[in-house]
Design a protein around this nucleic acid. Sequence first.
DNA 1: TGGTTCCGATACTCGATAGTACCGTATATA
DNA 2: TATATACGGTACTATCGAGTATCGGAACCA
Lengths: 226, 226
Amino acid sequence: MTERVENAMTQLAPQDVDETTDSAPKLGRKRDHTRDPEILDAALEVLAETGYDGMTIDMVAARAKAGKATLYRRWPSKAELVIDAVACMKKNMHGGDPLPDTGTLRGDMIAMIKPHSIEDSEKKLQIMAGLMSMISRAPELADAANAAIVEPRAAINRQLMRRAIDRGEISADCDVDTIAMISPSMVAYRTLMLRKPVDREYLVSLVDGVILPAVGLGARASAPTG
Amino acid sequence: MTERVENAMTQLAPQDVDETTDSAPKLGRKRDHTRDPEILDAALEVLAETGYDGMTIDMVAARAKAGKATLYRRWPSKAELVIDAVACMKKNMHGGDPLPDTGTLRGDMIAMIKPHSIEDSEKKLQIMAGLMSMISRAPELADAANAAIVEPRAAINRQLMRRAIDRGEISADCDVDTIAMISPSMVAYRTLMLRKPVDREYLVSLVDGVILPAVGLGARASAPTG
DNA sequence: TGGTTCCGATACTCGATAGTACCGTATATA
DNA sequence: TATATACGGTACTATCGAGTATCGGAACCA
């Protein structure tokens, strides 16, 4: 409630935060920053399971097999820990497989539907749900979450569509930006509110029943293979 | 966290809840049930402003100008109060204006875009956001929220599309159920995560850039009037 | 080796809030 | 009028969790 969030520190690395850059003679044991990612991952897990308000620092510490004080040595508050965790989620995303290039927009989009990415997406949406209550207090968090969770998928869709435009498969008049957001938005709503499964069948029906028609490719214009 | 939610009572009206139906001789002052809606509305307001976890019973009582004990006489817990508030939101929805019938699907959909409904929708989405953290603990709440907030809009879209099918304007092969969810889902995502304005312009662009193309009506096939 | 800082762990403070108890008052039945 | 209950308000209890303090031990540096 009375929480204030001014600035995430976002990985300042070796020296501590409020030191005036040079006044630290670096004595004694060094902070083990290899543990940061483990702690942030633990925070994301707890966040997905219990939501921001349900999440306690003790849970995160226990999950990361770390002491509570260790967390407070690295992040000044629960809020900043979460903000950092969400921000780092984006960085730590492996670029993943290269974009498919099957020659048709439908082929590319269907090729993007992989069990791994479905499950990955569901986990990230749980994190997003857990963040919702905090977003009204820290709106910049919405940007971070969007950048880490949904924007990458939308960017892929945009690129696939632009290539389709370039090869003349679809019209250049398409509202690429909006259409690229269709499946992320609908998958988010279906997962979080309808709580219905987002499986391959649903995603294919989105491609064939909404996206392809929207770009002017009639549903029955493409290959039969799922 | 340790909250349990078994059953919402959902407006049992005159007699109290746990009375075995007839053993109440009805003595003394009667409960003033005309205040129930005021209390539930206050709960929805606070819910939209602060979210479930940030909401306190004292806030709701103060907003409704009622005593905290009064709330606990009527609902056994904060959770059940909220569940009841969301459930009653659906009931208390005035049917609103009759469906537009302009003769074209585009005309009908554009006619549905009214300042009042935009603002109403935004308020309801704030409530939905406030509920998110609780939904994982009480999944039936997701159904109630969906039924009260998004489903009515989707139902309208379905009906407009079915009429368009009946009059031969669009093909009967359209995936009506899925397409009817496009604008609710995208509006929800845009409001809650992107925090961008959902204004008339955006809604029109959804109709012209996504929905009409998806049902096979080329974007430039319709009336010029916005 | 000795001083310094980090580590995990635990105990503590302190504010906030769900839920209860009780007050004086208002309103209903008998 | 007497009784019983609801009312708005307030004080209280009990719990929970953020953040702090401190511990013995380990790692690092001079």
